[in-house]
C-alpha cells in the first residue's frame, strides 16, 4: 500500500491489474496449502478410526460366534474351530507384569543416577547409550533371547530358582515344572530389558524438569541426595513418572517379535512361570499366515482388537498424566 502512495499517479492500470493477479495467486497458494495441511491432520484421525473400524469388521465373525465368552475361554482348537482369548490375554498380562516389576525400579534408579549422581562428562554418553538400547529393533532382542538368553536361563537360572523356591508353598507353584528355557519368565525378562530404556529416558526427562530452586532449598535444609530425590523430586514429578511407566507398559503389552521367539506359543494358562505360554501379539505373529478358515483368521483379528483396546487405554492414561505434568511445569 505504501508503495502505491509513494509512486502516486505513476501506477498505471496495467500495473494494478498485474499486482492484483499476483495477490490473487498468493491468496490461492495460501488457501491450498492451508487446506492441504488440514487434510493431512485429518488423515491422522482417519487413520486411527480406520484401524479401529477395520479390526472391528475383521473380528465380527469370531465375536459373533463366541460372544462374550471369547474373553474367558481357554480353548484354542483350529480343528474344531473353537477359540478363546484367555490364554493369550493371561500371557500378555503376566509377561508385561514381570517386565514392569523389573524395569520400573531399575529404570528409576538409573534416572536417579543420571540426574543426581553422574559426573557431568558421562551424563550425555550414558544417556545416549540408554537411548540406543531403545532403538535396537525388537527382532534383535528376539534372536538374542532365543540363542543366548534362553539357554543361559535354562542351564543356570531356572534350576537355581527351582532349588531355591521349590519348598516354599506359594513360590513353588510359580517356579515348577522342567526348565525349558523358553516360556513366560524368559519373555518377561526380555521385555524388561526392552522397556527399561523407555522408563529410564522418560523418567530422566521428567526429573530434569524439576525447578532447581526446589532441590536447592531441600539441600539447604540439610537433606541428603537420596532424601532430595525421594521427598522432593519424586513427589513433584509423580504424575509424569507414572505416565512414563504407562508408556513403557503400552510398549510391553504390544511387543511382538522379542516375545514370539521365546514364549513357546502354547495356548495354556499355567501358574508356573517356566511353562511355555503365548501372548496376544505372539499368537497373531505365529499363526496368522497359517490360519485356515474365516473363524480362525477372525479370532486372531479379534485378539488384535483386544490388544489395541488394552494398549489404547494404557497409552491414553500415559499421555493424560504426562500432559498434566507439563501443564504444572510449563
Amino acid at each position: 500500500m505504501s508503495d502505491m502512495t509513494l509512486k502516486g499517479a505513476t501506477v498505471t492500470a496495467a500495473e494494478a491489474a498485474s499486482r492484483s493477479a499476483v495477490l490473487k495467486r498468493l491468496r490461492l497458494t495460501d488457501t491450498i496449502f492451508h487446506g492441504l495441511t488440514r487434510v493431512a491432520a485429518l488423515a491422522v484421525l482417519v487413520l486411527l478410526s480406520g484401524v479401529i473400524i477395520a479390526l472391528v469388521i475383521g473380528a465380527a465373525p469370531a465375536l459373533g460366534t463366541f460372544g462374550f465368552s471369547f474373553l474367558f475361554d481357554e480353548s484354542w482348537n483350529p480343528v474344531t474351530e473353537k477359540f478363546g482369548a484367555l490364554a493369550p490375554i493371561y500371557g500378555t498380562l503376566v509377561t508385561s507384569a514381570i517386565a514392569m516389576l523389573i524395569a520400573v525400579p531399575v529404570g528409576l534408579m538409573i534416572a536417579f543416577f543420571l540426574t543426581e549422581l553422574c559426573p557431568m562428562v558421562l551424563r550425555r554418553p550414558i544417556g545416549i547409550a540408554i537411548e540406543l538400547l531403545a532403538g535396537i529393533p525388537s527382532i534383535i532382542y528376539g534372536i538374542w533371547g532365543l540363542f543366548v538368553f534362553a539357554p543361559f536361563l535354562q542351564q543356570y537360572v531356572q534350576p537355581f530358582l527351582i532349588d531355591a523356591f521349590g519348598s516354599i508353598p506359594v513360590l513353588s507353584t510359580l517356579f515348577q515344572g522342567p526348565p525349558y528355557g523358553i516360556g513366560m519368565l524368559t519373555a518377561g525378562l526380555i521385555l524388561a530389558i526392552m522397556v527399561l530404556p523407555f522408563v529410564t529416558s522418560i523418567s530422566r526427562d521428567v526429573f530434569d524438569a524439576v525447578p532447581p530452586v526446589l532441590k536447592e532449598a531441600a539441600y539447604g535444609v540439610g537433606c541428603t541426595t537420596w532424601e532430595v530425590f525421594r521427598y522432593v523430586v519424586l513427589p513433584f514429578t509423580r504424575v509424569g513418572v507414572i505416565g512414563g511407566f504407562m508408556l513403557g507398559l503400552g510398549r510391553a503389552l504390544g511387543e511382538t517379535m522379542a516375545v514370539t521367539f521365546v514364549i513357546g506359543n502354547a495356548h495354556h494358562v499355567s501358574a508356573s512361570l517356566f511353562a511355555p505360554g503365548t501372548t496376544i501379539s505372539a499368537s497373531i505373529a505365529n499363526e496368522f499366515t497359517e490360519a485356515v478358515g474365516d473363524i480362525y483368521t477372525s479370532s486372531l483379528v479379534a485378539l488384535g482388537l483386544i490388544l489395541f483396546f488394552i494398549t489404547f487405554i494404557v497409552l491414553a492414561i500415559a499421555r493424560y498424566m504426562l500432559m498434566r505434568l507439563q501443564q504444572r511445569v510449563g
Partner: peptide
C-alpha cells in the same frame, strides 16, 4: 497413541 500403538495391529 498411534506413535506407540502395537505394530502388529498396524499389520492386521
Amino acid at each position: 497413541i498411534l506413535l506407540s500403538a502395537p505394530s502388529i495391529v498396524i499389520g492386521l
